[in-house]
Design a protein around this nucleic acid. Structure first.
Lengths: 120, 120
DNA sequence: TCGTCGGATCGATGGTGGTCAATATAGATG
DNA sequence: CATCTATATTGACCACCATCGATCCGACGA
């Protein structure tokens, strides 16, 4: 839910961002606006097979277990991750398309090529 | 300040994000975690010559003037924008390198090829 | 069936953030 | 100097959020 894919993928330096697109993007950026969640995302994404169970990544943080669970839920609600239960453990993985969309939105008009010349 | 350029530019899906890098990135993502600021950034960046004075973009929002000023300050403190006074008006512009860094960090390892197969 | 373990949910709390009215500052103009 | 305009700063208010302890649920093993 809350995935308004499609018209919100133009780099925001190219044309003014519509208000509704901005609202949707803000939800995702808000999910990234926390050091713990950034590290959680990175740990899961860079883990073997691109997925990890909570017990693998929890010990990395000096945080109570409900706090980790809360952050994972935020990332999942924002559409950045998904999870699945396998027996006793719950595995999380990153949704690459979500990251890709955000990456595209942030692309600069002139991606700092090595020419060094600016517009003119 | 708070610009630790260099080691924080590897896509976070490639390797676990160090805690200090995560803290720095979180500051920037936090600045983007608001619809008004996303639209402000986009309006300025897509404006003529890549810069705009506050009076150009303020009327777009139904917000009080101090609120706009506050959001612009957040974006500037995060290193995403800079500004300069020219006579009566203050002009803002986006720092492309900052956007580029964030864009790089969010790059997916496998940019969603159509194969659908995972890894291997 | 019972106890244990992994993980999610609930409720509370302290801190942070978005917003505004009021005020201050800086430049332009008379 | 007086005054107007454009923008920033201050202080306050309310909402939201990160965190925790307590509790609950689902799966496994004895």
């Amino acid at each position: 839910m809350s995935n308004q894919a499609g018209s919100c993928c133009a780099p925001l330096v190219r044309e003014p961002l519509p208000a509704d697109s901005a609202a949707g993007l803000a939800v995702m950026f808000k999910a990234l606006a926390d050091p713990v969640r950034l590290r959680l995302l990175s740990l899961v994404a860079s883990h073997e097979d691109g997925e990890a169970c909570v017990c693998d990544i929890s010990p990395t943080f000096d945080l109570a277990q409900p706090t980790i669970s809360h952050h994972l839920k935020v990332l999942r609600s924002a559409g950045l991750m998904d999870c699945e239960r396998r027996g006793t453990w719950v595995y999380y993985w990153v949704i690459p398309e979500a990251l890709h969309r955000l990456s595209t939105v942030l692309e600069a008009a002139n991606p700092v090529s090595d020419t060094g010349s600016v517009t003119v």
